[in-house]
Design a protein around this nucleic acid. Structure first.
Lengths: 167, 167
DNA sequence: TGCAATTGGGATTAATAGGTCTTAATTACT
DNA sequence: AGTAATTAAGACCTATTAATCCCAATTGCA
């Protein structure tokens, strides 16, 4: 079972990170994204449509079409994506499944869960796609450097490090 | 979609709390538990069997049978139940779904998620069923007191506060 | 204008989780 | 021993999510 986010939502977050790493913001083909992240093409297609409808992506049809972030990565938060795909159940549901649990009627772990949720909310609200993608750049550069030192890159010219191989 | 725990696991946690509130530790009928918590009888049946196989419950067949906690509530942690029903995916899976993500190969939110997970682990490891059930007793007593003050209890003698109505 | 390259969107299928039903096995009591 | 009460276990059904497929709509370019 997925955890915290639905599978579609995980895909959406991965794809958004992928787009954020493209500095020039020109549209990218769905095919390229799905191939790079090993996400089934048609599944990602629907998820991207969904993100586009929610105003997070722009999509262009036809030749030279593709998907791009609608805003600068620094202006997109993970919570924007989670909200668009999974709604707000994550933020409102009782972790033990008690239907009437809430701030004014806490279940026995409500306060502990609220603390944990604060931590999750911090992750979703206080990091934008730009920061996260820079984090990735740093990491990938580091790996590339190490690779050159340790491997015979001449004989493995196609060994490329990208978002998927890196995590 | 359930969140963090599977539905069965939520049921298991609720049922365990229910049993923990029974001080005398005599077996309780499945029917009573499922009715009280509004959990489908046969669904809960399987989950309880599962907990029994994992050594967390004892089950007695036949007349005067039923389920009881196998240890004192103070010696059962939420994580015991979660592990028995949902396994350890919650503790090992990458929150963004990256297959190779881990401590030595973090995805861009790995550290943030680790922090949030610590909070969750605290909730699951550091509170035993006894504490949680006492927490509930306090709350239910308080509600009962208020109820007596505010409602005409003579005309509503069956208005009972229990685990389910309380959360 | 016609063609090729794309996304859009609906229909269908597959997989998984959740729920129902039936019967067997076990136990306690008379 | 017989009977009623209860859990055990498996078969089966249903709902939701995930994945696949097909064709329509749009766009850019020759």
């Amino acid at each position: 079972m997925p955890l915290l986010f639905s599978k579609s939502c995980e895909y959406a977050l991965q794809a958004a990170l992928f787009l954020a790493r493209h500095r020039d913001r020109s549209p990218i083909l769905l095919r390229e994204i799905s191939d790079s992240l090993y996400i089934p093409y048609h599944v990602l297609s629907k998820t991207m449509q969904n993100l586009a409808k929610n105003g997070l992506l722009i999509s262009n049809k036809g030749m030279n079409g593709g998907f791009a972030l609608s805003r600068h990565p620094s202006e997109i938060l993970l919570k924007d994506i989670v909200h668009a795909i999974d709604g707000d159940e994550l933020f409102t549901r009782c972790v033990l499944g008690f239907p009437k649990c809430g701030d004014r009627n806490p279940c026995p772990v409500h306060n502990q869960w609220t603390k944990a949720k604060d931590s999750i909310l911090e992750m979703l609200y206080e990091r934008n796609l730009d920061e996260l993608s820079q984090n990735l750049d740093t990491k990938i550069n580091l790996i590339e450097t190490l690779k050159e030192r340790c491997c015979d890159t001449k004989s493995n010219p196609n060994l490329r490090i990208d978002l998927h191989t890196c995590c």
